[in-house]
Simulated scan of single mutants.
Amino acid sequence: MTKASDGTRRTWRTSSHSSTGNCVETARIGNQIAVRDSKNPALGMLLLTPSAFGDLLERIKR
């Protein structure tokens, strides 16, 4: 769990398929899904709606 600049706490999750730590992490922020690089979380995050995140996962699975 990390503390955000606004004082809220976020739980970042990593895929259970990741054994090396070289992957992305996700967290729920309000009604959005945040995605960040696990190797360099200070670079920031991408905020997606649940619908857009679902679309992204479907494209990755192809």
Rank of each mutant, 00 (worst) to 15 (best):
Arg28Glu: 09
Glu25Arg: 01
Arg28Met: 14
Trp12Ile: 00
Ser18Asn: 13
Thr20Lys: 10
Gly30Ile: 03
Gln32Thr: 10
Thr8Met: 00
Gln32His: 11
Glu25Asn: 00
Ser16Tyr: 00
Asn31Arg: 12
Gln32Pro: 07
Arg13Tyr: 04
Ala34Phe: 02
Arg10Pro: 02
Asp6His: 08
His17Leu: 15
Ser19Asp: 10
Glu25Ile: 00
Thr14Gln: 08
Ile33Ser: 12
His17Pro: 11
Ser15Gln: 02
Ala4Tyr: 07
Cys23Ser: 11
Asp6Ile: 10
Ala27Phe: 09
Thr20Cys: 06
Arg10Thr: 04
Ser19Phe: 08
Gly7Trp: 05
Ala4Val: 06
Thr14Ser: 11
Gly7Met: 08
Trp12Ser: 01
Val24Trp: 15
Thr20Ser: 15
Arg9Asn: 11
Asn22Tyr: 14
Thr20Gln: 09
Gly7Leu: 05
Glu25Ala: 03
Asp6Thr: 08
Arg28Pro: 01
Ala27Gly: 05
Glu25Lys: 01
Val24Phe: 15
Arg10Cys: 02
Gly21Asp: 09
Thr14Trp: 01
Gln32Asp: 14
Arg10Val: 04
Arg9Phe: 14
Arg13Phe: 02
Ser19Glu: 13
Trp12Gly: 01
Ala34Asp: 12
Ser15Gly: 07
Arg10Ala: 05
Asp6Asn: 13
Ala27Trp: 11
Thr20Val: 07
Arg9Thr: 14
Thr14Leu: 01
Thr14Asp: 02
Asn31Ser: 13
Ala34Gln: 04
Gly21Thr: 05
Gly21Cys: 05
Ala34Pro: 08
Ile29Trp: 09
Ile33Asn: 10
Gly30Ala: 00
Ser18Pro: 05
Asn22Asp: 14
Asn31Ile: 09
Gly30Gln: 06
Ala27Glu: 01
Trp12Asn: 02
Thr8Ser: 15
Gln32Gly: 03
Arg13Pro: 01
Ala4Ile: 07
Arg10Tyr: 13
Ser16Ala: 10
Asp6Pro: 00
Ala27Gln: 04
Arg28Thr: 14
Val24Ile: 15
Arg13Leu: 06
Asp6Gln: 08
Ile29Val: 14
Ala4Thr: 12
Ala4Gly: 03
Asn22Ser: 09
Thr8Lys: 05
Ala27Val: 04
Arg28Trp: 03
Gly30Phe: 00
Ser15Arg: 02
Cys23Gly: 05
Arg9Gly: 11
Ala34Leu: 04
Ala27Thr: 06
Asn31Tyr: 06
Ile33Phe: 02
Asn22Glu: 15
Thr11Trp: 07
Ser16Arg: 05
Ile33Ala: 11
Arg9His: 14
Glu25Met: 07
Thr11Pro: 04
Ala4Asp: 11
Ala27Lys: 09
Ser16Glu: 00
Arg28Ser: 12
Val24Glu: 11
Gln32Ile: 01
Val24Tyr: 15
Asn22Trp: 13
Ser16Met: 04
Thr11Ala: 12
Ala34Asn: 12
His17Phe: 13
Gly21Tyr: 04
Asn22Gly: 04
